[in-house]
Nucleic acid binder design. Structure first.
Lengths: 237, 237
DNA sequence: ACCTGAACACCGTTCAAGT
DNA sequence: ACCTGAACACCGTTCAAGT
């Protein structure tokens, strides 16, 4: 009696069905619960990395059978979305009181980035499917309100809030493969730049040493400052 | 006689070894080559999606055994990095002549984004490990030169070029899970917003219809304009 | 010298069979 | 009503055995 065309996890329809049915869902006491599974998934990601998130290892950690997991979750994809919803809840921290809008947005961006960097196992799974979760929507509402408060239209505020989220998550994601802060990686990078053909790469060869030390952090700071400047320009004139 | 501590694909050391040894590597005529494998991988990604990139299916497409692939590539990870290098080569198009710097950067950003959107299967695999490939480094040199030409320091130009790459790839990546342009998705999103608690979500409920139509495109345009404005501000003031 | 079949240790998911 | 063992159809990777 399952739905013949299953709804893909993370779509609006999926989150809609989830929030609408929240109250009628059976709430018997059980050993296993969706929350317990999602939290176990997050701790698995933290301790053993992204590749370790398998149904087998999760079941092992929860001391149940693999099949038992499918009682609370229809697929691994769905589990991932639910786990990311929880992760967002853990990562979003309210900024300290009394900051101006710029410092506040800056603080929140850094805070969420630091959270992602501290939990690299999560990052691969952040694909935007957690954006409509209750947790994310609370953050979104708050973020839009902040931007409307300084003079943006609702629509602008929404796009702006989304762009910040996209940039913060995106910049961590696009730098996952390689650790640019690692001195050994920097040394190798320098040798790579130095060894290029100077005719075809005049700048990279000439500034090999300096450029080998520029990393994902610099990229992030530049982009963040740019986004903040753009808002400032828009509201002042 | 293999290296006891294998070098991770995509690190500077890996690209270094690859470019330094390029000339001594045996160049016998073979049916199979690294380029052929990488291109087959890309076409597999295009026609069957990201999950279809397996060694088995690739071997099937190339009419060889799985084991034969490991003669040209030490692991699936390495294959992915090589394939992404080729993808970057396909995606980077030189801008039309005669554009100003702003229009040129804008054109390049849109052009690469459109490439990624047209080949969604690739995007998951863009994790920054292809940044040091010969193809990417050519693009980087060109991009830095462009920014130095309008007055940025070499270091700023490097961070700026990286931030653009990060933002373009990141924004596509963070919107992979859900198609915000799909009318059905928009309709569901509207219902989701409308159904929220108006006390806790005053803006989302009040502007549900308008906000349900804002998508990843708007995010991207806002962020791109912000980055461009920031450069403009830096060089004029 | 080059390639392959077959195996190994894993996956996600299902379902008849148990209690 | 709930849970599980065992199976199914897949993975990436290795290697003895072939030619």
């Amino acid at each position: 009696m399952d739905d013949p065309t299953p709804i893909r996890a993370g779509t609006a329809a999926w989150w809609l069905a989830r929030t609408e049915n929240a109250d009628d869902r059976p709430r018997r006491r059980r050993m296993l619960s969706l929350e317990l599974i999602a939290d176990a998934a997050l701790s698995l990601l933290d301790t053993e990395g992204a590749e370790a998130l398998t149904m087998r290892r999760l079941a092992q950690r929860l001391e149940c059978s693999q099949a038992a997991l499918y009682r609370h979750v229809t697929s691994r994809d769905e589990l991932v979305v639910v786990a990311m919803d929880r992760a967002v809840g853990l990562g979003l921290r309210p900024p300290p009181e009394g900051l101006g809008w710029r410092e506040s947005v800056e603080w929140q961006s850094h805070s969420f980035r630091d959270f992602l960097l501290a939990h690299p196992g999560l990052v691969v799974f952040m694909r935007g499917t957690e954006r409509l979760s209750p947790t994310s929507l609370s953050g979104l509402e708050h973020s839009i309100a902040q931007f409307v408060g300084i003079g943006l239209t609702v629509r602008e505020a929404y796009a702006t809030a989304s762009a910040f989220a996209t940039f913060v998550v995106g910049s961590v994601q696009f730098n996952l493969g390689v650790d640019t802060a690692d001195p050994e990686e920097q040394r190798m990078r320098r040798r790579l730049y130095e060894g290029l053909d100077p005719d075809r790469h005049p700048i990279l060869t000439a500034h090999a040493e300096e450029l080998s030390r520029v990393g994902s952090r610099d990229e992030f700071e530049f982009g963040l400052a740019a986004l903040l400047d753009a808002i400032e320009a828009r509201i002042t004139g």
